[in-house]
């Protein structure tokens, strides 16, 4: 060891500090920023355009049917001469609403069922999980069509049908998480400290699975939007006059064959882009909530 005054302490600027791993971080940051910007634009458009725009999205102008994109109609017009940009924003609004409601309901059901199965264990767990397995073995869309067909077309039946077919995966995720947590010593310590079954579930297990469940919910929003679009496309979802993204694509089918690409492309983009943006944000969030990452300081 040398007796020289330590060079490293003073810190700021005087010593040549070397950094690590900056490059990987920046690409991730870019992805997150782009996703966040896209989600923000989507949300703003959906919230602000309908009340601010004086235009009527249902205004039919048969003289201007199927016009390609222009300054007056940036996305062109559909077969009834309606402005596609406006229709897409309204459609996104409906689809997003269905997606959010369905994801919320599915997550609440899934978390409750999964947490109960995991926390109770034994026979209750086995019974519940067999039901989940059985339901999962039926194709989602088929089950969804069945449920929708029971009701009159509208937003509520579609949201219910998507929620009813999508809580299964959340239940599985939450149950697996609860099962792995249940054997942790900190649960033992809580039991030894006199905590009731209810208190252990509510205070120690549920808060631990909520981030996972919330992540599943966020990822389910685009999924539910896809389902809504699929149901509407099949003519079973929302009433045909309602501007949902699925309805827009559906009604554009015939014009696509005639070479008019815009009535299909733009609603399609409105389905894909928010989906990717939400998935991008959720991916970044998943990395953040991983507790192993948070304690990377190795102390």
């Amino acid at each position: 060891m040398t007796c020289d005054a330590p060079a490293a302490e003073a810190g700021t600027g005087s010593t040549p500090w070397r950094s690590y791993g900056t490059k990987r971080r920046s690409t991730r940051t870019v992805r997150v920023r782009v996703s966040a910007a896209l989600v923000a634009v989507t949300v703003l458009a959906v919230l602000l355009v309908p009340p601010l725009a004086q235009l009527d999205q249902q205004a039919v102008d048969l003289a201007a049917e199927l016009q390609p994109p222009s300054w007056a109609h940036p996305f062109g017009t559909d077969d009834l001469g309606r402005d596609l940009l406006l229709r897409c924003v309204y459609g996104l609004r409906v689809s997003l609403l269905v997606g959010l409601v369905a994801a919320l309901v599915a997550t609440v059901i899934g978390t409750a069922v999964g947490a109960a199965a995991g926390a109770l264990g034994g026979w209750a767990d086995r019974c519940v999980m067999r039901v989940v397995d059985t339901l999962s073995s039926v194709p989602h869309l088929l089950l969804g069509i069945f449920i929708v067909a029971l009701f009159r077309p509208g937003v509520v039946p579609v949201a219910v049908s998507v929620a009813a077919t999508h809580w299964l995966s959340t239940a599985r995720i939450v149950r697996a998480e609860v099962l792995s947590l249940r054997s942790r010593p900190y649960i033992d310590a809580a039991v030894s400290g006199g905590a009731s079954r209810w208190r252990v579930a509510v205070r120690h297990l549920l808060p631990a699975v909520l981030p996972q469940a919330a992540l599943a919910a966020v990822l389910m929003v685009p999924h539910a939007m896809w389902h809504e679009s699929a149901l509407s496309f099949l003519g079973l979802g929302l009433p045909a006059h309602m501007a949902s993204l699925g309805n827009l694509v559906q009604s554009a089918r015939s014009s696509l064959l005639a070479g008019q690409w815009w009535p299909t492309l733009f609603p399609g983009l409105f389905i894909i882009v928010p989906t990717l943006a939400i998935a991008g944000l959720a991916g970044a969030w998943r990395e953040r909530i991983n507790p192993r990452r948070r304690s990377e300081l190795m102390l």
Partner: peptide
């Protein structure tokens, strides 16, 4: 009871005060 691995024996969401106080609250 005190276990071997403190990391696994502590609820990661609780501050140390709440960790210590938890049995009092539970009872």
């Amino acid at each position: 009871v005190v276990f071997q691995q403190p990391r696994l024996s502590a609820d990661p969401r609780l501050r140390l005060t709440d960790l210590i106080a938890e049995p009092l609250r539970a009872t």
